[in-house]
C-alpha cells in the first residue's frame, strides 16, 4: 500500500515535471515570439518614419519651388502692370496733348478761314479784332498800319484805346516803332508784369504784320481779360498766323477797296462822258 502511494506520488511528480517542462518551453516560445514581434515593430516603425520624412521633405521642396515660382511670376506681373500703367499714363498724356493740338489747330484754321473770307477792308479789321478778343483773350489792343508816305504808324482799329486813336508812332520810335522797323515781334516778361497799368508806348506784346519781309503794320496788346493769366503756346501760334495772314488779308483788302473806289470813279466819269449831250 505504502509502495503504491509512493509510486503514485512519483508518477504525479513525473507528470508535474513534464508539465513544468512543457510550460517552460511554451514560455520560452512566447518570449521568443515577443522578441521577434518587438523587433518587427521596431523595424516597421523605423522604416515608416524615414519614408514619411522623405515624402514630406519632397513635398516641402516642391511647395518651396512653387512659392518661388509664384513670387517670380508675381514680380513679373507687377513689372508688367507697372509698364502697362506707365504706357496708359503716357497714352492719356498724349491724348490730352493731341486734343490740345487739335483744338489749337481748330483755332488757327478758323482764324485763317475768317481772315481770308472777305476783301472788305473794314470787315478784315473786324475779323482781326474778333480773333484778338475771342481767341487770344485781349481786352485792350490796337491795330496800327504803316503809312509809307509819312513814315509812321497810325491806329486803324482799337479796343479800349479810344483816347489814343489819333496817336502816331514814328518808324523806329520806342518798342512799337522798333518792331515795325525790324519786323521782330516783342513780348513782355508777362508773368512779372501783367498787372501793370496800360501804357500806350509799352504794350505786353507787339506783333509785326508782315508780307514776306515787308512790314505793313503792327498789332499791339496792352491788357488781357481777367480770366486770362498769360499768353499760352497757342497764342504765339495765333500771333504768328496774324503776322502773316492778317497782313496779306489787310493788304489785299486795302488794294481791293482802293481799286473798287478807282473803278467806281472811272465808271462815273465814263457815265458822265456817255450821257453828255453831243
Amino acid at each position: 500500500m505504502e509502495k503504491e502511494k509512493k509510486e503514485d506520488i512519483f508518477k504525479k511528480s513525473e507528470e508535474f515535471l513534464q508539465l513544468f517542462q512543457k510550460t517552460k518551453e511554451f514560455m520560452e516560445e512566447l518570449l521568443n515570439e515577443n522578441a521577434r514581434l518587438r523587433y518587427k515593430i521596431a523595424t516597421i516603425e523605423t522604416k515608416g518614419t524615414s519614408s514619411d520624412t522623405e515624402y514630406y521633405q519632397k513635398q516641402l521642396q516642391e511647395l518651396q519651388h512653387n512659392v518661388k515660382k509664384l513670387i517670380n511670376e508675381k514680380k513679373e506681373l507687377e513689372e508688367q502692370y507697372k509698364e502697362v500703367e506707365k504706357e496708359n499714363k503716357d497714352f492719356a498724356t498724349r491724348y490730352v496733348e493731341i486734343e490740345e493740338q487739335n483744338n489749337n489747330l481748330a483755332n488757327l484754321y478758323v482764324a485763317s478761314y475768317q481772315l481770308h473770307s472777305t476783301l472788305d477792308f473794314s470787315e478784315v479789321l473786324r475779323i482781326v479784332m474778333e480773333i484778338i478778343i475771342n481767341l487770344v483773350g485781349a481786352e485792350v489792343f490796337s491795330v496800327m498800319l504803316f503809312d509809307e508816305k509819312a513814315n509812321n504808324l497810325k491806329i486803324v482799329a482799337n479796343e479800349g484805346l479810344e483816347d489814343h486813336s489819333n496817336d502816331i508812332i514814328e518808324l523806329g520810335e520806342g518798342i512799337i516803332g522798333s518792331v515795325a522797323k525790324t519786323g521782330e515781334p516783342y513780348y513782355i516778361n508777362q508773368s512779372l508784369e501783367l498787372s501793370i497799368d496800360i501804357d500806350f508806348l509799352h504794350p505786353l506784346a507787339c506783333i509785326p504784320l508782315k508780307i514776306k519781309e515787308h512790314v505793313i503794320g503792327v498789332i499791339c496788346i496792352y491788357k488781357l481779360f481777367v480770366q486770362k493769366e498769360g499768353f499760352s503756346a497757342v497764342d504765339y501760334e495765333l500771333f504768328n498766323l496774324l503776322a502773316g495772314h492778317a497782313a496779306t488779308a489787310i493788304f489785299s483788302a486795302k488794294l481791293y477797296t482802293q481799286s473798287e473806289r478807282k473803278l467806281s470813279t472811272i465808271q462815273g466819269f465814263l457815265d458822265l462822258l456817255t450821257s453828255a449831250p453831243t
Binding site: 481748330a106 478758323v110 482764324a111 478761314y113 475779323i127 474778333e130 478778343i133
Partner: peptide, 10 residues
C-alpha cells in the same frame, strides 16, 4: 461774331 460761331460749331 462769325469767328466764334465757326469755332464753336467746330
Amino acid at each position: 461774331s462769325p469767328t466764334m460761331r465757326q469755332l464753336l460749331s467746330f
